[in-house]
Design a protein around this nucleic acid. Structure first.
Lengths: 208, 208
DNA sequence: GGCTAATCCAAGCAACTGCTCGGATTGCTC
DNA sequence: GAGCAATCCGAGCAGTTGCTTGGATTAGCC
């Protein structure tokens, strides 16, 4: 545990070129992905990761400068998966009746996050340098672009005077509500009710 | 670093009874409070805390069963401070014109969180057991009670059919927006604009 | 097949972690 | 001030951490 306050090295050291090493690389990332949710960030050590991957620790340090880098790699894969699933589900959203576009969009995000909730929780509440990971930094903008597609689909009935601040609020509301309902669901309200209300809010706010 | 997945002991081991030991206790908590923001959770060790408090490590373990417990104690103090400042600022909110109540309330919360942003960030993004700390678990309800006071002050023009889900959304929106504007302010929108828009949203949503 | 570079691994080190022990010192009570 | 509990501390242990070294093994290429 040397990190203290230093900015960690997050980039992989070197890319594997042969097939054998690519497998090792993948095995390491996969092992780390599996370990993080069940052991937590602090207790997921490089030795554990290597052991679980059936590989020697030294091989890990062949490809990653340290623990931070492999964790960052796991985050990048996570972002990739999430974005891919959103992309995959987008047609279903776009093909919906206009009135249902927002609801479908929110449900899609919810389901996608839900599948990865354990990992998301770790990165959100344990990894100290989560928002320094490039892929994480970029995800906001990526999501914005997605939302604009939905918005265009919703077409005519989106208000023209949609300020930057207003946009931020919508995104805040959607993401925080979905995260809460997935990671720490309130006892006194069903998820159904919560999401229903969320859809209503967003629609009212977005409509011209 | 033994914790892995075990539930940590968060209660202090024993309360100091003499003056001298009470000072030691305070010095330890203070030292930890100062250390957490600048070293981060993982690198804040019991040895560091004791050293900075000018006290031997053994004394730390006299009063706390472990690192988790002293960190939890810091969290409790933090919650106390925040609630106290809200309480302190409440009169100014309540004495405002009705139309300004919401704005004043939100500004008060923002300023209060802002003063403790470093600590808040640590507990939010690094400490793995933050929401298991009793004081943290209770803070939601405490805030709700505060808000209800403001709501009553706002009096007649609060809608009657204010569903549980709707309440959750308001709280989500306010807290997540304030946290974002304090911990990770967006580049393309000024804080002023963001908070202004937030006030507008909440008012529109709350009004009958 | 032979050569070079890529890849792997057994072993283990130095640093640091949370934590404990025995005894010394201090304050309280009478 | 005697006696006793509360409090403190020097010293250090056992376990774990992230990481390295030197040499063995393998794959790719002529």
């Amino acid at each position: 545990m040397r990190s203290s306050r230093k900015t960690p090295d997050l980039a992989p050291k070197k890319r594997p070129v042969q097939d054998r090493s690519r497998e090792t690389f993948e095995a390491l990332v996969t092992a780390c992905t599996g370990l993080l949710p069940r052991r937590g960030y602090a207790s997921t050590t490089t030795n554990h990761i290597a052991a679980r991957a059936g590989v020697n620790v030294a091989s890990l340090y062949e490809y990653f400068p340290g623990k931070d880098a492999i964790v960052a790699q796991v985050a990048e894969r996570l972002v990739q998966r999430v974005l891919a699933r959103l992309e995959e589900g987008l047609p279903r959203v776009m093909s919906a009746r206009r009135a249902d576009a927002v609801r479908r969009w929110i449900e899609l995000i919810h389901d996608t996050v839900s599948r990865e909730k354990e990992l998301v929780s770790v990165f959100l509440h344990q990894v100290p340098y989560t928002n320094q990971i490039p892929a994480i930094e970029a995800i906001g903008e990526r999501l914005l672009r997605f939302s604009q597609q939905v918005r265009e689909r919703a077409g005519g009935f989106v208000r023209a005077d949609f300020s930057e601040a207003s946009m931020h609020l919508v995104i805040n509301l959607v993401s925080s509500t979905i995260l809460q309902s997935v990671l720490d669901p309130p006892r006194d309200v069903s998820r159904r009710d919560l999401l229903d209300e969320l859809v209503r809010w967003v629609e009212e706010r977005i409509r011209a």
